[in-house]
Amino acid sequence: MNTKYDLIVIGSGALGTFHAYHALQNGLSVALIEKDKQPVSATVRNFGQVVPSGMDTKWQNYGRESLKVYNDIQNKFDISVRNNGSIYLASNQEEVQLIEELSIINKNNGYESHLLTKEQCLDKYPGLRADYVHAGLFFPEEVTVEPRVMISRLLQFLTSEKGLQYYPNTKVVRCEAWGDNEVEVETAGGAIFKGAKVLLCCGSEFKTLYPDVFANSDLEVTKLQMLQTRPQPGYELKGSILTGLSIRRYEAFYECPSFDAIKAKENADSFEKKWGVHILFKQAADGSMIIGDSHEYADAANIDDLGFDLRTDVDEFMIDEAKKIFNLPTYEIQNRWFGMYSQCKENDIFQHTVDNNIHIVTGIGGKGMTGSAGFSKENIKQLFNLS
């Protein structure tokens, strides 16, 4: 190819595509290369909850920037953003204490949240069980998206409106620096792409292109199970619903003064601990309810150890726990699936530079849908020394 791009991005999931978006916003020329017809991994297999509230202070800031990006794009092009807020439902007094402490932290951070009484929660969320909820913490700025719709429409927006050069069904087999200011990328079809910089955001191609770096990384893979009910007749549940087990798991609550003492009391041998279960609800655009999820872990090099089966005991446990929280019109399940994402054991994201102009960025973990848009804005500025 005769074109030399300012940036070549490999991997069109949320992390790669939002890097492409911010590069384009800064006037750079961008080629985005995707090995599949469309993204098929972590970006399209999650809840579609954009919840900065669940993150530590550093990533909450990225998430809050992401909210601005999502809303700005939505105002120009429908990418399925729904502004309907998030709530954490406390099921006992320990969890009430944690949400009260988090509300103080958020006040100090300038992030809007509202404590709701039991009665206010019951009034706001139909079907919520009175014998479960004690109080809630509501975040009005947070949004939901339909993951598969969002990434597809975002790519459509960037190609039709922003000048992105997008190459799906294109497998990269070589990525090599030429001199001080050029990188050459070769595809399985023999095409050559040239760019000033390459950003590699795809775990599988990271493993293929740089096996030694991959083998020495601290990446691990998480497998999550999720379920989808049939559409709920005549029923609407707005926003992201996070419950007591989420309060006991999400990083934001680690900063609460009482968190360590409350966690120390938990039964380390419980089923929810063994399988990393916390119960989430989100109603999809078709009226169905997404319920989950669970967490199993393996080193990235041993991803096959996680298998490809769905554990019926995990699904049954999640359904039983969900029924303790909401009386839905139906719990008939129409779809079950698992997703996988990579994360770092010691760091919050994996970043590595090869030959000055080849940058590997992956392992964003469960923060991808919420944090990618904000993180990539800052990262593009750093990579290109932009003000």
Rank of each mutant, 00 (worst) to 15 (best):
I364T: 06
D212G: 08
Y125Q: 04
G27P: 10
V30N: 06
A261M: 12
F375I: 01
F206M: 10
C121P: 11
N379D: 15
G16C: 04
S270K: 08
T17I: 00
K162T: 05
T243M: 03
R148D: 13
G239F: 00
I247N: 01
Y62N: 04
D56Y: 03
N267Y: 11
D123F: 14
G179M: 06
G234I: 07
L67V: 02
G136D: 07
T43H: 05
V172S: 07
T229S: 03
D56P: 02
E316M: 08
G371R: 01
A191E: 13
H114N: 12
L154P: 02
K377C: 08
V198P: 00
Q334K: 09
Q343A: 15
I73Q: 00
E251V: 15
G374D: 02
F384S: 04
A177Q: 12
E255G: 12
N61G: 09
G363I: 00
N2S: 14
K377D: 13
L102E: 06
L164P: 11
A298I: 02
V96K: 06
Q283S: 07
A135Y: 04
S387T: 12
R249M: 13
I33T: 11
A373E: 01
L199R: 10
F384K: 04
I364S: 04
A90L: 01
I105Y: 01
K282E: 04
N92V: 09
L89E: 10
P233R: 03
K4I: 13
A188I: 13
G368W: 02
G136C: 10
A14K: 10
L116H: 07
L219P: 10
T330V: 08
G163D: 04
P168V: 07
V221R: 12
Y132L: 00
D269Q: 13
T208G: 02
T312M: 15
L242G: 08
L89S: 07
V50H: 00
K367E: 03
S66K: 07
Y341V: 03
N75M: 11
M1R: 12
V44E: 00
F271N: 06
S41A: 15
F206P: 03
K197V: 06
A298S: 05
G27F: 14
I247L: 01
I358Y: 15
K381M: 03
E146R: 05
N356Y: 14
E112W: 12
G16M: 05
H114I: 15
N2Q: 15
C256I: 05
V198N: 07
T17K: 00
Q343K: 14
L242S: 13
V213S: 10
K76C: 03
G363C: 00
E332H: 09
V183W: 11
T187G: 02
T243K: 02
Q74M: 00
I79W: 06
V185C: 01
M226S: 11
G16K: 08
R153I: 03
S29M: 05
I303V: 11
L7M: 10
K223W: 14
G11R: 02
E266K: 09
I241L: 11
K207V: 04
H352L: 13
S12E: 08
E205L: 09
D355Q: 14
E255I: 09
G85L: 12
V50F: 02
I333N: 05
K274F: 14
Q382M: 07
K345T: 15
T170V: 00
P211S: 03
Y62G: 02
Y21M: 00
K107E: 14
Y254I: 14
P211A: 01
T57A: 08
S294M: 12
